[in-house]
Simulated assay, not measured.
Amino acid sequence: MIHISEFVGRVFTYISIALMLFLSIPIAYEAVMRSFGYPTIWVFETTLYSFIFLGFLGNVLAVKSGAHFRVTLLADLFPSYRRAFDLLAHFSVLLFAVLIITSGSYFAWYSWTHDTVSASLLEIPMWIPQFAIPLGGVGLFLQTLVAISRSGREDLPHTEVD
């Protein structure tokens, strides 16, 4: 299960990196076209939705690298209980990920079943950008499982953000 979670985390990370690289192309195109007086109708909306996916899928990399935000006040005050506080934090993230998965899935499912589209000329089905929410939740859940499985090993470097 951990190997599958790590694989999914790598896939989400590569997708995030590809989106970062991809986003520069339409934004540069829009800037050039706008300077010649020919603004596009598609760049803003597609790049906005790509940023949404980038944000939710980027959670995997943040958890993996230890850059995901954490409040360490209690762990700093009581260092002998740091491991217990870390586990509590990880299980809280798992609970939050389940909440994101379930509510985001309902959100996307509702838009899909009611044929909700964007209010722009493109009329993009809204379930597509909304699908980033449960997908990001799955990535967050799986990467947190990896972090929990590795938290007991001393041979791995401990990453922490204060």
Score class of each variant (00 low, 15 high):
residue 137 G to S: 01
residue 108 A to L: 02
residue 43 V to F: 01
residue 104 G to D: 02
residue 52 I to G: 05
residue 143 Q to V: 07
residue 10 R to M: 08
residue 70 R to Q: 04
residue 147 A to E: 15
residue 147 A to H: 08
residue 54 L to G: 00
residue 140 L to N: 10
residue 155 D to H: 02
residue 117 V to S: 09
residue 13 T to C: 13
residue 29 Y to E: 04
residue 81 Y to A: 12
residue 151 S to A: 14
residue 25 I to T: 11
residue 116 T to A: 14
residue 1 M to Y: 03
residue 74 L to G: 00
residue 26 P to D: 04
residue 119 A to C: 07
residue 118 S to E: 08
residue 73 L to S: 06
residue 156 L to H: 01
residue 10 R to H: 13
residue 140 L to K: 06
residue 84 A to W: 12
residue 140 L to S: 08
residue 155 D to Q: 04
residue 62 A to M: 10
residue 137 G to V: 01
residue 53 F to H: 01
residue 43 V to W: 04
residue 128 I to A: 06
residue 159 T to K: 12
residue 121 L to N: 01
residue 127 W to Y: 15
residue 45 E to L: 02
residue 154 E to M: 14
residue 131 F to S: 14
residue 107 F to P: 01
residue 43 V to I: 10
residue 134 P to V: 03
residue 93 V to L: 13
residue 8 V to Y: 08
residue 29 Y to I: 14
residue 51 F to L: 03
residue 145 L to T: 01
residue 31 A to R: 05
residue 79 P to V: 10
residue 95 L to V: 15
residue 30 E to N: 10
residue 125 P to V: 13
residue 147 A to F: 06
residue 104 G to A: 02
residue 53 F to W: 15
residue 137 G to R: 07
residue 156 L to W: 10
residue 133 I to N: 02
residue 88 L to A: 14
residue 86 D to S: 14
residue 72 T to W: 06
residue 83 R to S: 11
residue 94 L to I: 07
residue 29 Y to N: 12
residue 29 Y to W: 11
residue 125 P to S: 10
residue 3 H to R: 14
residue 10 R to W: 11
residue 100 I to H: 03
residue 59 N to W: 13
residue 49 Y to P: 02
residue 10 R to E: 10
residue 34 R to S: 14
residue 97 A to K: 05
residue 109 W to D: 06
residue 104 G to P: 03
residue 67 A to P: 01
residue 104 G to W: 08
residue 110 Y to C: 07
residue 76 D to R: 09
residue 82 R to H: 07
residue 40 T to D: 07
residue 20 M to C: 10
residue 149 S to N: 14
residue 75 A to E: 15
residue 20 M to Y: 03
residue 10 R to Y: 06
residue 13 T to D: 04
residue 140 L to T: 10
residue 102 T to V: 14
residue 121 L to W: 12
residue 95 L to E: 03
residue 24 S to A: 10
residue 42 W to D: 00
residue 119 A to W: 07
residue 155 D to G: 05
residue 158 H to A: 08
residue 159 T to I: 15
residue 106 Y to S: 12
residue 74 L to M: 15
residue 144 T to G: 11
residue 87 L to F: 14
residue 19 L to D: 08
residue 107 F to R: 02
residue 124 I to P: 04
residue 74 L to K: 12
residue 59 N to T: 06
residue 92 S to T: 15
residue 109 W to Y: 12
residue 33 M to V: 07
residue 18 A to H: 05
residue 61 L to H: 11
residue 98 V to S: 13
residue 125 P to E: 10
residue 148 I to Q: 08
residue 21 L to M: 15
residue 22 F to L: 08
residue 138 V to T: 05
residue 96 F to Q: 00
residue 98 V to F: 15
residue 110 Y to V: 05
residue 106 Y to M: 05
residue 152 G to N: 15
residue 97 A to S: 15
residue 148 I to W: 06
residue 71 V to H: 09
residue 1 M to C: 01
residue 41 I to R: 06
residue 74 L to R: 11
residue 118 S to W: 11
residue 142 L to H: 00
residue 100 I to L: 05
residue 83 R to V: 12
residue 90 H to R: 08
residue 23 L to R: 00
residue 41 I to Y: 00
residue 127 W to T: 09
residue 149 S to E: 09
residue 122 L to A: 00
residue 97 A to D: 10
residue 37 G to S: 04
residue 84 A to L: 12
residue 161 V to W: 12
residue 22 F to S: 04
residue 113 T to G: 02
